[in-house]
């Protein structure tokens, strides 16, 4: 078996992880506000298709990302209206969103399969890109990769260093008292849901515009569900969500490299490995959590201010 170049592996895992990272960061904010939206997969795939169509039509990747953000947010707001306005069950509504999103995306994507999108060039980071090892591993990516890393920092500051973040967290911890204190619980939750949808849409568009880069049916292939798992893995903290996303992306990339390098392991086992590792990690995390709660206390509980 030939060696695997670690610099290339890191470079590949950063690209592979970006869609999941974006979606997971969005969902983390939603869950911090006390809402469980299981529709991430649906919002991602709608983002992927609308992003691709817009990017292709405009001949510009950024038009695609913009469209995907809007489409993801719009879809999320259906969920928002149903769960916040009409107090529907969040789990069921989230599942419905995924099923609807997959169908809608496949419908919108008719006639767009197999086309060649505009692509997104890499950032020119000058001398940084020529650094030994690090240059090849981390300084030769496109802007979205760095934006996703920036989002980790921004969200960390927002959640734990800003007043608005504090309010958002208090809504997730105890919606009734936040309401009693005069905070508009529903509006805050709707805003968080919209943000989550925008992130998921952007993540999906990264798949169809940069990573693959084309549109095909079902192309998210469970990435949205992985994002949900990573939020749990990341204990609702941006930094740990980053670790989780890169870990999952790393395993996905590693197993392909192992196959290409001629490892004598069953292919089915290799391609199931990212999911098996996710389960294992979830188990380890939940064992730890038994000793102290980390999830937002009101996560998934419907809130209806009774007059």
């Amino acid at each position: 078996m030939n060696g695997i170049d670690p610099a290339l592996l890191i470079a590949a895992l950063m690209v592979a992880s970006t869609p999941i990272l974006l979606a997971a960061l969005g969902e983390m904010v939603v869950e911090r506000a006390g809402v469980l939206n299981l529709g991430v997969e649906g919002m991602m795939i709608v983002g992927a298709v609308s992003g691709f169509i817009a990017a292709y039509g405009a001949g510009n990747a950024w038009a695609g990302f913009g469209a995907a953000i809007l489409a993801g947010a719009a879809l999320a707001l259906i969920f928002g209206v149903l769960t916040q306005g009409l107090v529907s069950n969040q789990v069921a509504t989230g599942l419905a969103l995924t099923l609807f999103g997959l169908g809608l995306a496949s419908l919108l994507g008719q006639g767009w399969v197999g086309l060649k999108g505009p692509g997104l060039g890499r950032m020119d980071l000058g001398p940084l890109a020529d650094l030994p090892f690090l240059g090849r591993a981390v300084f030769r990516h496109d802007l979205v990769v760095y934006l996703s890393l920036g989002l980790v920092i921004v969200l960390n500051l927002f959640l734990f260093r800003s007043r608005a973040g504090l309010v958002l967290r208090s809504v997730g911890e105890n919606a009734a008292s936040a309401h009693a204190l005069g905070y508009p619980v529903r509006a805050i939750r709707l805003a968080a849901i919209g943000f989550g949808g925008a992130c998921a849409g952007l993540g999906g568009a990264y798949l169809s515009i940069v990573r693959v880069p084309q549109w095909s049916d079902g192309m998210t292939a469970g990435a949205g569900w992985i994002a949900l798992a990573i939020v749990v893995f990341g204990a609702w903290r941006p930094g740990r969500v980053l670790v989780g996303a890169y870990l999952f992306g790393g395993i996905s990339v590693l197993q392909l490299n192992l196959q290409a390098a001629g490892a004598e392991l069953p292919i089915e086992l290799l391609s199931a490995s990212p999911y098996l590792v996710t389960i294992l990690v979830l188990v380890l995390i939940s064992r730890r959590r038994h000793r102290g709660g980390e999830a937002p206390a009101d996560l998934g509980r419907p809130f209806h201010a009774s007059a």
Binding site: L38, W225, L282
Partner: peptide, 13 residues
């Protein structure tokens, strides 16, 4: 046994 989220585990499987 561990309180692991059954939604995610059943789906990964």
């Amino acid at each position: 046994r561990f309180g692991t989220n059954e939604i995610l585990v059943s789906l990964m499987l």
